[in-house]
Design a protein around this nucleic acid. Sequence first.
DNA 1: CTAATTTGGTAACATTTGTTACACTTGCTA
DNA 2: TAGCAAGTGTAACAAATGTTACCAAATTAG
Lengths: 223, 223
Amino acid sequence: MEKRDLLYFCTACRDKSIEDIEKIKCTIPHVLKTYKKGEYIAYQGDKVAHIFLLTKGKVKTEIVSDPGLTLHIEEIGAPYPLAAAFLFADRNFFPVDVVALEDSEVIKIRKEVIEEQMAKCPFFLRGFMAFTANRMQFLSERLKIFSLKGIKTKVAFFILQHTRGEEFEIGQSIASLAEYFGVERPSLSRALSEMVHDGIIEYKSGRGKIINRSELEIILNDV
Amino acid sequence: MEKRDLLYFCTACRDKSIEDIEKIKCTIPHVLKTYKKGEYIAYQGDKVAHIFLLTKGKVKTEIVSDPGLTLHIEEIGAPYPLAAAFLFADRNFFPVDVVALEDSEVIKIRKEVIEEQMAKCPFFLRGFMAFTANRMQFLSERLKIFSLKGIKTKVAFFILQHTRGEEFEIGQSIASLAEYFGVERPSLSRALSEMVHDGIIEYKSGRGKIINRSELEIILNDV
DNA sequence: CTAATTTGGTAACATTTGTTACACTTGCTA
DNA sequence: TAGCAAGTGTAACAAATGTTACCAAATTAG
């Protein structure tokens, strides 16, 4: 473990060199644990009393609904704070099992220690808040896109959000945009083609232009 | 404004009587603003430097993509903290306009003041963290449901999440469950009927029973 | 420069979901 | 008790999206 891992949330430490960080007398009580591939890091229903900073390795989460039958949920790679959303929530228990997919390393910091550190170090407080706020923002945006029905509606929303003036850039491949929307690539491709055909937008190789803005609005407001 | 509004996030104050709260010498610098119906509370692109506690009234958010053409996003009623996700985020500007739908009252507290208060009062810190964590949890769950393709998949996930043993309860009307899933009521109704017909579950008036659990798992893992 | 790989457009068809309308139940109210 | 409203199941049809396969364009590797 590097000391930097422990100061993951501290905006003042994040960019410091390893040497500088060694000099800081900022001590945070914690436990360092290593897990072999296949070991359980946390169990469904466990109370979340620590931050779990995954510093090395990779884990998966799964729901066990019946002995022998498990349901895979997602994979998470280091470095990442596990269970950050649960530590301070009213329903503060693990909704899933967490299992090491590779040999992994986890720093566990007690909730009370996190609270103290936030009270003590403004940079840590800001870093922690920034982490949760950024994640909330990310989730909000994705949920907004997902809640829009119809691929053209998603496209219209995306374009209106990513344009100032008349021209927009997709900034990523069609394939990854389709994944972002949660639809199949050919479906997105078809929707785009139809919108071009209908004279609503122009589009070519990642760049586009709004032709009929009010039509875009209509697509969106019809929802 | 009630003083309680100002201590919205403080878990120690939330349940106190108005009289008790009056006795607390906990002062938080703030600005109280009132807006007439139709007035703008914040503009798209504004830097978010305050928490906006909506204490009275109702607001809407909208994207203005072109003069005269606006896109309605959502309505928010008091009491609710506006822009809580943006205050500490790296991208800390309003993504929307915020407009008063009724005569409204807003408490504005500067970011620095919030930080100080969190450092000073553990109850405020916890309350604030609980608010953001609960919201993150809510968003995560909804996003999970939305990201599952196919109504039966959503149903399977929902059931496996809401059951210990063999029996489950929907705990809400089919209509509101359909809304939660983001699908139409008859579609959900059809999916349930088919699952009953296929011998996967039993279901009657809000209560159900898993008949073929492994089939449920298959539906989910096929995704 | 050419071949190989990736990326994107398109078409035909299958599947899912939405839409609309109606019947039936339940609980409540006049 | 009759009548009304809300909630639900269902069916026929329409519309949207997924699936699969193939080709063309763009990019990369050699």
